[in-house]
């Protein structure tokens, strides 16, 4: 992997990343680099550290050693600036059930000083007819924490009741305001075919506009030209050598 630090083509990169969760080493010596308009797909077995890597990229988790850089500047130096330039979708949908769909979106957009993108984002993820409905009436899709079952294949015919409406709302949040870096942790999980297609379209549009995107997934994604990173390759051995 070409990792010249001053290379202007590289927007977002990580170098010699070591990660530890609790008392367990997750990965070590991990490297990545993305240019503007690139998609990086993270793969690897469960527990290999895809989510941890995304959290390190977001600045939520500090690596034990190594550094993540945006255009050559360490993200740990200015966390707020890094947070302002990224959208993160984690395992949890970050949906407030007592608020309506539109209120949820409006709040996140207001935090970023954005007002106009909400209707477009609702349309993009097929939520426009539900905008005034409290989010607790949306379908949740499968519970990830309890059963990480494989997500539905992309070309499934539309179901009677669209699955994963809350997940769609979580994704509409990132489409509602602009940020150059998207970090998506298994975004298509719990979605039906239509939802998956909407995610792919959103990622393609984001990258066509010069954005970067890192996606973790357990399934094949329909994203031409995406780079792949097998996180499992960097698995660290036992933490303690007796």
């Amino acid at each position: 992997m070409n990792r010249a630090r001053s290379d202007p083509a590289i927007a977002f990169s990580g170098r010699a990343l070591d990660c530890m969760r609790g008392d367990r080493w997750v990965f070590s010596g991990l490297e990545f680099a993305l240019g503007a308009g690139d998609v990086l797909v993270l793969s690897g077995p469960n527990g290999s550290g895809k989510s941890s890597l995304l959290r390190i990229m977001a600045g939520l988790l500090a690596p034990v050693s190594g550094a993540v850089q945006w255009h050559g500047a360490d993200i740990a130096d200015d966390r707020d600036a890094h947070a302002a330039r990224l959208h993160y979708v984690g395992h949890l949908d970050a949906v407030k059930l007592a608020l309506t769909v539109a209120e949820n979106l409006r709040f996140w957009a207001a935090l970023r000083g954005e007002r106009d993108g909400i209707d477009r984002a609702l349309d993009e993820f097929g939520l426009a007819p539900l905008a005034d409905l409290p989010a607790r009436f949306l379908s949740a899709g499968q519970r990830r924490r309890l059963a990480p079952a494989p997500p539905p294949p992309p070309a499934r015919p539309p179901r009677f009741r669209p699955a994963g409406q809350r997940r769609r709302l979580a994704l509409a949040r990132i489409a509602a305001s602009a940020a150059p870096l998207w970090l998506l942790d298994e975004p298509t999980v719990a979605l039906d075919g239509e939802g998956v297609a909407a995610v792919h379209a959103a990622i393609r549009a984001h990258c066509a506009g010069g954005g970067c995107c890192v996606v973790s997934t357990n399934t094949a994604l329909d994203l031409a030209g995406a780079a792949a990173l097998d996180v499992g390759r960097y698995a660290a051995g036992p933490a303690v050598r007796p």
Binding site: A58, L60, A83, L86, L92, A94, W108, L111, R112
Partner: peptide
Amino acid sequence: YEDGNFEVLALSPLA
């Protein structure tokens, strides 16, 4: 914390 909102709040431009 439980529904994931804090993660997104921590990554918002508001301190």
